[in-house]
Design a protein around this nucleic acid. Sequence first.
DNA 1: TCTACGATCTTT
DNA 2: AAGATCGTAGAT
Length: 211
Amino acid sequence: MSEVLPQSFYARDALEVAPQLLGKLLCRDGVVLRISEVEAYCHPDDTASHCRMGRTARNAPMWGPPGHAYVYLCYGLHQMLNLVTNREGEGAAVLIRSCEPVAGHDIIRARRGGIEGPNALTGPGKVGAALGLHTRCSGSPLFDANDLYVLDAPEPREWLVGPRVGIGYATPEHQRAPWRFALHESPWVTQRKTLTRVSAGASRTRKARAR
DNA sequence: TCTACGATCTTT
DNA sequence: AAGATCGTAGAT
């Protein structure tokens, strides 16, 4: 049986947590989704991050302790789910962009207006809809199996990496930053063309070399 | 208060 | 290529 991810799982850099979230199971109210695509929003100096303008009522959960949800409304329609990482006061989170449905297909179908297949869960707005999320969920903890939580699963050995989506307002460097991660074997991924394959070993080597 | 604009998705 | 749709942030 897989365990609920403990708060300590999230208490690391968003860039480290993000690829490790791939394959993990997002659960709420009978719906189970396998995480297939994520994006890291690393720190307040990340000009693509909601934390770039400092602490506000909306982004408060991002500045709070790790292992909590940050849900916000995008384009007046979409409930976007982020998982808060790092330590309290650091302002970082991982956006869940796409998932593969594992259980609760009937509920998902109802919430998604009958749309099925990979197209039903590729894109962060669709993930929020499938889980029935609302900005009211923002700030709720993820490390108890109560409402919304994540089950552990084996870490993938390789994945896709590339630039984040929909952040044209950020600096060119941050637009270019390869902070989006996806399961290479999954159809539940957006904008595949801009992603390239790397292995967990290569990622660790790069990190080691950088320090 | 007022205004502009989104970490999007659907339809044309 | 553009409309939906509304809370948020920054300006007034």
